[in-house]
Design a protein around this nucleic acid. Structure first.
Lengths: 205, 205
DNA sequence: AAAAATAATTGAGTTCGTTCATTTTTGAAG
DNA sequence: CTTCAAAAATGAACGAACTCAATTATTTTT
């Protein structure tokens, strides 16, 4: 029998994740020390490092959970999209944006994005990059789905356009989290304006 | 007369910048300690911090010099663009990409991009953000210039399209520096494919 | 059930970026 | 030239992420 060790391990991991998630949101990622997380999770500093390679990897573990959730919500939009290109894209994109601040602060996003760029080969950075690419696929799939249903012009490369759209979302989101005072509505509005010509490209004649 | 102090100050700043620039490229940003930079520039650690707020700000100072150079090269393309939308955009974008690795390594770019996101309110981060927005303007201006010369459709919002194009470039560049093995040619090719539908949007009927 | 083997925890120690009280250098005034 | 004030340089000290040799807990073996 070897259940105890497994159970304790899972429990410690959970305690670290929930303690860190709370502390990061309350005090800010930068202000929280490993010692604080360890104390809140009732483990030692050394033990913390048996569960997460670095402080940054812990943050990315939290962030990827959020992204996975958003991704699965997006799946339902792709499966059964609204009957207009503009509405369908707005619904998918709006979902991405609106969920971004439910569990995470802008500061957490800034740090997470920074780490994913600076240390791209760590386990959770790889996972994050993979999720980004799954979100790109999702946008491309939505366009392809609209084309398949005859709701969009079919002589436009769904892959190319989807990539451009997602890259634009991503940069606008970075701009959003870089500016602490910028409201979510501003992000929505700016992207809506940018999307107009692209939606026109897909509109049927 | 008060020339000595000014001269020494300028000289120390130059020594720090050149020493750091060399060390960062040779050994990598992460592997170079402030102590190393101070030693190479023949100043003390304390003095280093009289000239740059942080190690990251020093890196951004180096990076912004590169961006300023690229930006001024782009100006000439906008002033007198090639007579085709596709060629004009390729020339401007190609210029951005090709100059990016002349003075900087991918690792330096990763760190710089990470810092610009994570600490957006420091002096050089602000400058970097400003340069990004000038580059966006440059792309928008190129499109507007092509429209003014009757080389592109005028019923497309130059601003919106330019922003989307630049954001796409920026994300693709981030992807490029995140992947150490990815060759520059691959970046060019991927972006060329993505630009195709957008160029089509601007093409005259 | 005791002993041996394996796995996990622990916290003092190391490293490096950053700070700050002190010392040194420079420029101006007498 | 001497004196004084302001500016700048200095390096020891601090804080926080991360490491590792020693200890403790769990599982397996006899």
């Amino acid at each position: 029998m070897s259940g105890l060790r497994e159970k304790q391990k899972a429990d410690r991991q959970r305690r670290i994740l929930t303690a860190a998630s709370r502390l990061f949101r309350e005090a800010g990622y930068g202000a929280v020390r490993i010692e604080d997380i360890a104390a809140a999770a009732e483990v030692s500093v050394g033990t913390f490092y048996n569960y997460f390679e670095t402080k940054g990897e812990l943050l990315l573990a939290i962030v990827t959970m959020e992204v996975e959730e958003v991704l699965s919500l997006g799946e339902s939009v792709v499966r059964d999209p609204p009957c207009s290109v503009e509405v369908a894209l707005r619904q998918l994109i709006g979902g991405y944006f609106d969920h971004s601040l439910v569990y995470l602060s802008k500061e957490m996003w800034r740090t997470a994005l920074a780490i994913a760029i600076e240390a791209p080969d760590t386990p959770f950075s790889c996972r994050y990059t993979q999720l980004d690419s799954l979100m790109t696929d999702q946008v491309c799939n939505l366009i392809a789905e609209l084309q398949a249903r005859g709701l969009a012009r079919q002589d436009v490369c769904a892959r190319a356009l989807g990539e451009v759209i997602f890259n634009n979302l991503n940069m606008m989101f970075i701009e959003f989290v870089k500016s602490e005072p910028m409201p979510m509505a501003h992000l929505h509005d700016k992207v809506a304006v940018q999307m107009a010509p692209l939606a026109g490209l897909l509109a049927k004649v």
